[in-house]
Simulated assay, not measured.
Amino acid sequence: MLTGLEVAALIAAVVWSVLVTFLCVALVKLIRLINETTKVVSELGDRTGPLLDDVSTTVESTNAQLTETAEITANARSASEDVASMTALTRSVVTGPLVRIAAFSYGVRKVLGQRRALAILRSRRREGTRA
């Protein structure tokens, strides 16, 4: 028969073997996880190069388009300034003579109005002296 010490040693050996078995299973799973992680990182490294090339191409294309947009904006600004100067020139060319014509026509109307008024007064005076 087994003594108490032998039973305790047997239980400790069984517990120790179960613990070692669990640790071995956990270690195997950890090794698989590390291998999969290594594969993913390797694939990511392989895909990063072409991705960075695509990003670089996209940035270059965007810079070219921004340069073209800047040129278009500068041309639009120049055209706007040209239209503004043409408008100012047209205004000065057209409004100057129009103001003069308006002032002249006002003066002519005033003079003609005064002549009519004088003619009416003279005709009334003549009629008044005849009567």
Rank of each mutant, 00 (worst) to 15 (best):
V83Q: 11
V40I: 14
A9Y: 00
T95F: 12
L51D: 02
A103E: 03
V18Q: 01
V15G: 01
I31Y: 04
T48S: 09
G96C: 01
G4F: 07
T87C: 07
V41G: 00
A84D: 08
G96P: 05
C24L: 15
S17N: 05
L51G: 05
T90Q: 11
A74R: 07
R91E: 12
G128I: 12
L98G: 03
R77I: 08
M1P: 15
A26F: 05
A70S: 13
A74W: 02
I34A: 09
A64V: 03
A84I: 03
I72C: 01
C24Y: 01
I31W: 00
R115V: 14
I11Y: 00
V14E: 13
R109L: 12
K29G: 08
L118T: 06
V99C: 08
E81K: 05
W16E: 13
M1C: 11
A131K: 15
S105A: 15
V40K: 13
A88D: 07
E71T: 11
L66R: 07
A84F: 02
T37D: 09
A84Q: 14
P50I: 01
R115A: 15
L121F: 03
R116L: 14
L52R: 13
V25A: 12
L51S: 06
V28F: 07
A84C: 02
S123A: 14
T62Y: 00
A131W: 09
T48W: 00
A8F: 01
E71S: 12
V20Y: 03
G113A: 02
V41Y: 06
A64Q: 13
I72A: 09
M86I: 02
N63G: 10
V40M: 15
D54W: 06
T37S: 09
I72Q: 10
A119P: 02
T87L: 14
A64S: 13
L5K: 05
L118Y: 07
A70P: 02
M86W: 05
A103H: 03
T62C: 12
A102V: 03
V40E: 15
P50V: 04
W16K: 05
A102G: 06
V14D: 03
